[in-house]
Write a protein that binds this DNA or RNA. Structure first.
Lengths: 218, 218
DNA sequence: GTCTATATCCCGATAGAC
DNA sequence: GTCTATCGGGATATAGAC
């Protein structure tokens, strides 16, 4: 059968993409040569050009195969069991956990792509599509959540998703540079303020204390 | 006098730094060659190495001569004349104005530096110091402001500064990629929620309407 | 301190054998 | 489709004249 050939081709493509994802994430796209990607995938640079035509082609193919939906995924995974504030805390701690491999690399990779998009329209287009999808999904999740727990959000679902994503992104950046300036409970407070979870009564059913700093010592 | 020599040296140094700031900001640090910097400053690459030893040395000297305090400056500049919400709106519109040259470049440059810091401890150190100063200053400004206008902030001054900076940063990034997803009034709502400006009464003295989208059509 | 010239290296991409 | 070999270009950094 000709199947073996096709399989090898497909495997090569997959291995190249995986290698690129790895290397790009932790060394930066510009710092990684085509040869390095090929070698990490057990091939040579010729294979890269046969499959993707150029380094840029490789990057675009990679973006096309990705989920930007880290936030969306996290929102989807939130367990319904915990208290509302506890759920928000879980989202943040997963997002900001630098020990986890995928999450740890997420902010760096995301910023790298954003920066590239700021100077490369082709990348910007792909990123915009992905971003729109993720926001749509997050908006739905947040909408369901806020009405379920009786929160009074700062803005309509679409806008709220933008605000929450923005705050989480900014906090992740800040934490990466100066972890001690963004304790978990501060992040939680910020999110709570945006989604409008009530916090003013001493023992509200939200499971969050109004003033002091107590939960998730990480 | 030997003064002429010294002056020329100082001027060369200043011109090199200025040229580097310009080029780095709009093409990216890696994309700019030492030769390009020198040429833009009316010198040759030899001058760069005589003054800074390496490209990295040039970058560090540049960081050392910078103010990261864009946000701090903006907070300081807020006029006392307008309504509280109007003042917040002014901060955001100055920060997110992509037409202004300095502000337009700010997010890109800031992200570039952040990204570099994520992989280069030397840069990270410099950035941390700068960031700490800016946050301290912002915290003082915000503290004075919130008590002056009678807001009920989400967190203590230091924490509040972190939250506000994070939200503004995240929103600026989002706006750069997809401007239509972050209208001015949405940004304002988010900031208002964090600083705890009251918005629930129909015509409160804050100058902000509670529900609809009306101000600063940009 | 500054310039010119150059050493040295590495990258992206192509050509051609298999 | 994949490899080997190589071209052409551009980068950082150094050497030496002035």
């Amino acid at each position: 059968m000709a199947r073996t050939q096709q399989e090898r081709k497909a495997e090569t493509r997959a291995r190249l993409l995986a290698a690129a994802a790895d290397l790009f994430a932790d060394q930066g796209i510009d710092a990684v040569s085509v040869d390095a990607v090929a070698e990490a995938a057990g091939r040579t640079s010729g294979a890269v050009y046969a499959h993707f035509g150029s380094k840029q082609g490789l990057l675009l193919a990679l973006l096309d195969s990705w989920k930007d939906s880290v936030l969306a995924v996290l929102l989807a995974e939130v367990a319904v069991s915990d208290s509302p504030a506890g759920q928000l805390a879980a989202v943040w701690s997963n997002l900001s956990d630098t020990s986890d491999e995928a999450s740890g690399r997420w902010p760096v990779l995301e910023q790298e792509l954003w920066l590239r998009a700021a100077r490369d329209p082709e990348v910007a287009d792909v990123l915009r599509v992905r971003n729109a999808e993720a926001l749509r999904f997050s908006a739905r999740q947040l909408d369901g959540w806020t009405s379920a727990v009786g929160a009074r959000p700062t803005a309509a679902p679409d806008g709220l998703a933008v605000l929450v994503k923005a705050l989480l992104t900014g906090l992740a950046l800040q934490k990466r540079l100066t972890p001690e300036t963004v304790p978990d409970d501060l992040a939680l407070r910020g999110i709570v303020a945006l989604v409008g979870l009530p916090t003013d009564t001493a023992d509200s059913p939200t499971g969050m204390s109004p003033v002091s700093t107590d939960r998730t010592t990480d």
